[in-house]
Design a protein around this nucleic acid. Structure first.
Length: 704
DNA sequence: GTTCTAGAAC
DNA sequence: GTTCTAGAAC
């Protein structure tokens, strides 16, 4: 169906219908994620409309604070009785949330929906702007929440009881709908039906709307008054989740679904929260009384260090013995019930099912850190998906009882996107079950100690995350050695930023190669050798410097000369090993002028560039322009001038694509790749000097 | 560093 | 309509 701005959007003016339509207020249910522009929509209509409109916003209905759905319903009833039109300004993303409002419809009231089905990206960017936080964390959280909400969205249907539904898929649609409701006079009605829904005709419709858009209309983002941008988000639906701690009286925590809703203090969504299961009491058959003692004792010990962060003990079942024991003991000790409480629910669905956001969850892991088994471990690995498995493997391959390992969760994991979990901490507790490995045979002296250690490691792991989530770690560890200080703005200012998490992996490997046995090919005192995770050629290794504070080539100075030589020697050794296996290989050893990953690393790369990981211009040019600094040249420069020359990255990385052998130019990556797979031209003369190319004697015959 | 995706280029 | 790039997300 098409939205016909010129025709149907105009109010009908037939006399008979006027009579019928008169005195029949409209209730418009806005449907959309946070940041979709619901409040702005209402405000704009209300400012120019001749009708009496009331905006009922769940976030402000309670004297400027978030209220309940019931309050919204009550207020809507009153306004409709007074003959006013009503906007219901809350997310209303599923049928269940809408049904009570639709019930207002009937001979006295008409119920419409306006669906702001805008791209998630746009909503997220608005939320980030609105909250004034430019940081990655806020953006990431907003993204996680909006994505989660949109994943579960249920678009309204006429069958729910709406007399009219207007779908807006972009800003133009929003404007059209806005003008339509603004133009509505008290005597008008709008045509019934579904308008603007995405369907095979959607493209035609958008075309028409674009065409109809008047030239003087600015886009709606510009026309948003600034006071609105400060306003809180309109859509929270407050869920009440029962959790209890303080003995007899069960305490309710309110968790708003909308992370951006303003509350007097910091919003729940922003509070670092660890959800953890009771360790060892299930399959490992640890005594419940002793375990609950240890939980409370350890929680108490960590309370002082927690700040505003929270700990939540989670169990799947109501009437869980551990939970009630812990509740009673915590109440006895007067532990702050806002920062430690218990929760009944699935630890992998705390947010989606229970409305409780926990950015970190603990897993009662097995010693192999592998999926399977049963209980919490199976559930967590299952929910985390392959991304969790891979990320776990990155951190450790096994765990001893009493220890914990923190695993940052990739955004590809459903636990991240659906639940907003950024880290999983695997914990291994003591085992009293003779059927399971490392059984302690009821030695509770040992067992208690191990369980205490397990909780200590868990909580310490959580604290380390909570701290970094407040702010990114600075590179305070650099420049530990005496020597010339390194200017912070190394090349075009790109290196002054804090290191984002993904940038750290090489650093972690360099500092703790023993934790990465699967990846590391060779670990020496000064260097670590590993395969590049995304090799850009048949053979592509990295030689990492094991040196704190040596993040990139710009950090390399005279005092690192010996290290640079060692890196080259080790790189050569591996290149020669490969040449021994296949004499047709040709290698180059060198550094990127400005690397993407932290920790100085030497690339050892075969010159076939035959790899599906080589995908774009930047990949190619980073190995085939002056951006790539040959190790031999770097050593010479550092030796002579105390530093290596670095080349401006932007220009070089976006240069045209040229074959590294014959220097012919190619329009795109696929064509280049197809060319280099056949090009047998000798390498350019400059590359053949000074040992920049590593090849066998017999292969060097291609030299003209 | 990768992944995702809109829209340019073909 | 399909392929490819470039920018933004993480």
């Amino acid at each position: 169906m098409e939205m016909d701005i010129d025709g149907t959007c105009k109010p009908k003016e037939k006399e008979g219908e006027q009579e019928k339509g008169r005195g029949k207020p409209i209730l418009v249910l806005l449907v959309g994620a946070p940041g979709s522009g619901k409040s702005t929509f209402c405000e704009n209509v209300m400012r120019a409309s001749l009708c009496p409109w009331v905006r009922i916003c769940q976030d402000t209905i309670n004297n400027g604070k978030a209220g309940t759905k019931a309050q919204c319903l009550q207020s809507a009833a009153t306004s409709l009785k007074e003959g006013k039109n009503v906007f219901i300004d809350r997310c209303n993303l599923d049928k269940e949330q809408r049904v009570d409002f639709v019930k207002f419809g009937g001979p006295q009231v008409e119920v419409h929906a306006v669906v702001l089905d805008l791209p998630a990206k746009l909503c997220i960017s608005r939320i980030v702007k609105r909250t004034g936080h430019e940081g990655n964390l806020q953006g990431g959280k907003a993204a996680a929440v909006v994505n989660r909400m949109l994943q579960n969205k249920e678009l309204p249907k006429l069958s729910e009881g709406f007399s009219r539904i207007t779908f807006c898929l972009n800003e133009t649609d929003v404007q059209a709908a806005r003008s339509m409701y603004t133009a509505l006079s008290p005597l008008d009605t709008l045509p019934h039906g579904c308008f603007g829904q995405k369907n095979p005709n959607a493209k035609t419709q958008l075309g028409i709307l674009k065409f109809l858009k008047r030239p003087h209309e600015t886009n709606s983002q510009d026309s948003v008054p600034s006071r609105l941008t400060k306003e809180k988000c309109p859509c929270s639906e407050t869920k009440e989740t029962v959790s209890s701690l303080s003995g007899a009286a069960s305490q309710k925590i309110k968790v708003s679904e909308d992370p951006m809703a303003d509350s007097s203090s910091q919003h729940d969504y922003d509070v670092p929260t660890l959800a953890f299961p009771s360790i060892s009491t299930a399959d490992f058959q640890f005594n419940l009384g002793k375990a609950s003692d240890i939980i409370v004792e350890k929680v108490e010990e960590f309370m002082d260090k927690l700040g505003n962060a929270r700990l939540v003990l989670v169990d799947l079942t109501h009437g869980s013995k551990v939970l009630s024991l812990v509740r009673a003991k915590a109440a006895q000790k007067n532990i702050d019930s806002k920062r430690f409480f218990t929760f009944v629910g699935d630890i992998t669905r705390l947010y989606s099912d229970g409305g409780l956001h926990c950015n970190v969850i603990a897993n009662a892991a097995n010693w192999r850190l592998k999926p399977g088994g049963g209980g919490v471990n199976a559930a967590v690995f299952n929910a985390g998906g392959p991304a969790l498995e891979a990320a776990t493997k990155n951190q450790a391959i096994s765990l001893l009882p009493g220890n914990a390992v923190v695993v940052p969760l990739p955004s590809t994991s459903p636990l991240y996107s659906r639940e907003g979990v950024t880290h999983v901490i695997h914990v291994l507790g003591p085992n009293m079950n003779p059927e399971r490995p490392n059984c302690l045979n009821n030695d509770y002296i040992k067992g208690c100690k191990i369980l205490q250690n397990a909780y200590s490691s868990l909580f310490e792991g959580f604290l380390s995350i909570a701290k970094t989530q407040v702010k990114f770690p600075t590179r305070s560890s650099r420049n530990v050695l005496p020597g010339p200080s390194v200017p912070e703005d190394k090349i075009s200012g790109t290196m002054t930023k804090s290191w984002a998490p993904w940038v750290q992996s090489l650093y972690n490997i360099a500092m703790h190669p023993e934790k990465y046995k699967d990846e590391v090919l060779e670990a020496l005192d000064d260097v670590v050798v590993l395969n590049d995770m995304y090799p850009k050629a048949k053979r592509h290794l990295l030689v990492l410097a094991r040196f704190e504070g040596l993040d990139c080539l710009a950090d390399a100075h005279k005092e690192h000369l010996q290290l640079l030589v060692t890196m080259q020697e080790v790189g050569l050794k591996w290149a020669n090993k490969f040449l021994h296996e296949d004499a047709s290989f040709v290698f180059r050893l060198g550094y990127h002028s400005v690397p993407s990953m932290r920790q100085l690393h030497l690339h050892v790369i075969s010159q076939d560039f035959e790899s599906k990981c080589l995908k774009n211009k930047k990949h190619w040019n980073s190995f085939n322009t002056a951006f790539f600094r040959d190790s031999v040249d770097v050593i010479e420069e550092v030796s002579n001038h105390g530093k290596a020359t670095l080349q401006d990255n932007n220009r070089l990385l976006s240069m045209e694509l040229r074959c590294h052998r014959c220097r012919s130019a190619h329009p795109n990556i696929p064509r280049l790749k197809s060319h280099i797979s056949n090009c047998q031209a000798p390498f350019p003369a400059a590359l053949q000097k000074n040992g920049r190319l590593i090849l066998t004697q017999s292969n060097s015959g291609c030299d003209p």
